[in-house]
């Protein structure tokens, strides 16, 4: 039983790490803001979810498991919101960009 749980932990955490790696590669390689956000949020949502899933069998107290789940849910919530906000800012009409020229001039070059 313990061995099975340990194997579940190893598999799930490794899968989660692969998602983080893939998300990072996507963040670095994808061409524009929206696709990069897509890669980033996948890493956060699925990668962190799998890591939490993998750690659940290893906790000693049920409250600690609840804490882990709460961390994942909060990361989901904030990740989704920040993704929306960034996407909204990135696709906003040009007059909004004029307010912070330095920031957006740098972003539009790459």
């Amino acid at each position: 039983m313990n061995l099975a749980l340990d194997i579940l932990t190893i598999v799930a955490v490794s899968l989660g790490a692969i998602f983080f790696l893939a998300g990072t590669v996507g963040l670095l390689r994808f061409p524009d803001t929206l696709t990069r956000l897509h890669a980033l949020t996948k890493a956060d949502n699925l990668g962190l979810g799998l890591v939490v899933l993998g750690l659940l069998p290893q906790v000693s107290a049920p409250l600690a498991a609840l804490g882990l789940l709460a961390v994942w849910l909060l990361a989901l919530l904030s990740g989704a919101t920040v993704g929306q906000l960034l996407a909204g800012t990135a696709s906003a009409p040009d007059q909004d960009r004029a307010e912070t020229p330095a920031r957006h001039a740098g972003a539009s070059h790459d």
Partner: peptide, 17 residues
């Protein structure tokens, strides 16, 4: 504030926690 954005939802859901 941008009205009706996802930020409004977050500001309603997150503070109790």
């Amino acid at each position: 504030p941008q009205s009706g954005s996802a930020l409004t939802l977050l500001a309603q859901v997150l503070p109790p926690f």
